[in-house]
Amino acid sequence: MPNTSSKGADRVPGLEERTATPRAASDAFDPARLTQARRLAGMTKKDVAEHLGVTPAAVGQYETGVSRPRPDVVPRMATVLNVPMEFFIAGRPSPRLNSSMAHFRSLRSTPKA
């Protein structure tokens, strides 16, 4: 009988579900993955910061690689951005998306963000 549960149905397709501990995800954190997930979710650094209970500057430091998120922040970050926690681990294949070709609104009516 197939599993009809919708758990994980909104996850990024093509990513393998491997189990990783929050500590491992924090230790091997890839800042570019956070930027990619945040942009795909259509969120600002301030939006992410509010959901995580950190400052927007902290999110900026995570994205630039100045600092890594604490292990307790990584699972919440994954939930907020709707990606598996393993998505943030460096060294995993990274799908590159060309967003320049995916625009369906008039540029005049599109918000700058």
Score class of each variant (00 low, 15 high):
D72Y: 14
F104V: 08
E16S: 15
G53L: 05
L15V: 12
R18W: 09
Q61W: 07
P111K: 06
D30E: 15
R68D: 08
P71C: 05
T44R: 01
V12K: 02
D30F: 08
A37W: 03
M101A: 09
A90P: 07
G60V: 02
T110L: 14
D10Y: 08
V54E: 05
V73D: 00
F87W: 15
S5M: 10
A58F: 05
S99R: 06
V48T: 10
T21C: 10
V73G: 00
Q36P: 00
T21S: 15
K46L: 04
R38I: 04
P31I: 08
G42F: 03
N98R: 10
P75K: 00
V66N: 12
M85C: 05
E50I: 02
V59Y: 03
E63G: 03
P111M: 12
R38L: 07
P2D: 07
V48I: 03
L52Q: 05
I89C: 05
P95R: 13
S94Q: 08
E50G: 01
R68Y: 05
A113S: 12
E16A: 15
R70L: 14
L107P: 01
G8H: 07
F88R: 02
T4E: 14
V73R: 08
A28K: 10
T19K: 06
V12T: 05
T35W: 12
G53Q: 05
E16K: 09
M1G: 13
L81V: 02
R108N: 04
G8N: 08
S100I: 00
F88G: 01
H51W: 03
A25L: 14
A24L: 14
E63P: 01
S26A: 15
T55H: 01
L15I: 15
G14S: 04
R70C: 09
R18K: 11
G91T: 00
